[in-house]
Design a protein around this nucleic acid. Structure first.
Length: 430
RNA sequence: UCCUCGGUAGCUCAAUUGGCAGAGCGGGUGGCUGUUAACCACUAGGUUGUAGGUUCGAGUCCUACCCGAGGAGCCA
């Protein structure tokens, strides 16, 4: 008998098939019994009908517990009464394992309990929907860059020095040396961009910051494009194109999942180019008008990000930040050397920074001065400075956080649900 | 790291002024011919986070600690 996945069930209408999966729920009503089976691709209702109370099928049905694994065989029928529109008339139940009492019942649970059972919580419908969208999101990101001729050049996770210099790194042993888990592939991207023109890296990044918010993960995934000869304006446009492409794809491919998540898609549907662009100083004026006490030279906190997303109903690009609050490699504005050609793209609906990036310094002398100014060990940046000696060109890039983007698209309350196994402050289980 | 709130059955929660520790869900048993987180009846299930203190008596009050949540800060 043919083994089919529930997502493909329509093609097997009026045929006898085999469904392999787990008991999602079961109900009985005298002579008729229902099994909801999930197989990872969907949930299907199977029915058993018998006039005999102790028929062999009923006996097997009665043994089943929530999440028991089994193979059902039977006829696929169209039936309006079934949740999926199709139903399986069960002719045979093959039990693989009877599950022990499953801790996650179909009723409500607290977050700390669910997080402790994250390995099982993944089976629940909403978690499943979020992660289903995640796989489409990652595919869309790759397609976007691949279709534009970008080369995927992944960068190392183990790095020799505190390349960023500023934020907290995870340290590990590397034979007789120290190594650090990567916080960004950007510096290496600049090298591959000079070799391949336009590149992107896509991988996990690690930040040992003691952040305890709904927007931060200790380990998260980031896609970072880098383009030789590109200016700030070029990569702002690239950011807009990427975000609109992603949104369009998810709206097209993940209707079912967005529906399960009860996501109002209207705010996503209006996300089209161009996005509003404001400079840091213009944003500051808008924020003060709305009552913020932020002063020039301060970075935006989450109250400021929230105000910005109240003002605009699309992602907003903020540019020209004070140099002192941004990284050492950011290209200063020629007319205002105290500002840098950086851009942060803030999501709508209060989801904070999706993208951070900008134009990089390509002048060798200036970069050396900045390294000194930021008190960074020059030896560690010898190879990076080489890139400015051998055919240096203006170049720009950015990083987009996958989990922030996914949280926003799914409108979930906390970023911890946007990755199968979140690493959170002090929490590394399961 | 700071502020606020919380920790009672497997889960979600209740317990009046300090006075018998309780309900729903889940589990078990039985019933029901179309259920949709089914429903109905019965039933088992407790070191009230830990340690100490006040009191005739503490889930409730006090002290310390542990754990969790929300927020802030931190954060290319």
């Amino acid at each position: 008998m043919k083994w089919v996945y529930i997502e493909d069930i329509a093609a097997s209408k009026d045929q006898e098939v085999e469904i392999r999966g787990w008991v999602y729920n079961k109900r009985s009503s005298g002579k008729i019994r229902f099994i909801l089976i999930r197989d990872g691709t969907g949930i299907l209702q199977g029915t058993i009908y018998s006039t005999e109370k102790d028929s062999p099928l009923f006996k097997k049905f009665d043994e089943l517990t929530q999440e028991s694994s089994l193979i059902l065989r039977g006829l696929i029928r169209e039936d309006k009464r079934a949740p999926a529109g199709f139903e399986l008339s069960i002719k045979d139940i093959e039990i693989i394992q009877i599950a022990e009492e499953y801790p996650i019942s179909p009723k409500e649970h607290g977050i700390s309990f669910l997080m402790e059972y994250r390995h099982l919580w993944l089976r629940s419908q909403k978690q499943h929907a979020v992660l289903q969208i995640r796989t489409e999101l990652i595919k869309a990101i790759r397609d976007f860059f691949d279709n534009k001729g970008f080369r995927n050049m992944d960068t190392p996770i183990l790095t020799p020095s505190a390349c960023e210099g500023t934020t907290t790194l995870f340290e590990t042993e590397y034979f007789d040396q120290k190594a650090y888990l990567s916080q960004s592939g950007q510096l290496y991207n600049e090298a591959t961009a000079a070799a391949f023109g336009k590149v992107y890296c896509f991988g996990p990044t690690f930040r040992a910051e003691k952040s305890k918010t709904r927007k931060h993960l200790i380990e998260f995934w980031m896609v970072e494009p880098e383009v030789a000869f590109a200016t700030l304006d070029d990569i702002i446009e690239l950011s807009e194109d990427l975000i609109t492409y992603i949104i369009e794809r998810i709206l097209e491919k993940n209707k079912k999942e967005l529906d399960i998540l009860e996501r109002d898609t209207e705010p996503l549907e209006r996300i089209k180019k161009p996005f509003p662009r404001v400079t840091y100083e213009e944003a500051l004026a808008q924020l003060k008008e709305k009552g913020s006490k932020i002063e020039w030279g301060e970075d935006f906190g989450s109250p400021e990000e929230n105000i910005m997303s109240e003002i605009y109903d699309k992602p907003v690009c903020i540019t020209h930040f004070p140099a002192k609050i941004k990284a050492f490699y950011m290209q200063p504005d020629m007319e205002r050397p105290d500002l840098v050609l950086g851009v942060d793209v803030l999501a709508s609906e209060g989801y904070g920074e999706l993208i951070g990036g900008g134009q990089r310094i390509h002048d060798s002398g200036l970069l050396e001065r900045k390294i000194k100014e930021f008190n960074l060990p020059k030896e560690d940046y010898a190879w990076y400075l080489d890139l400015r000696k051998y055919g240096s060109v203006p170049h720009s890039g950015f990083g987009l956080g996958v989990e922030r983007t996914l949280s926003w698209i799914c409108k979930i309350k906390h970023i911890r649900e946007s990755i199968p196994f979140p690493r959170l402050l002090y929490k590394i289980y399961p």
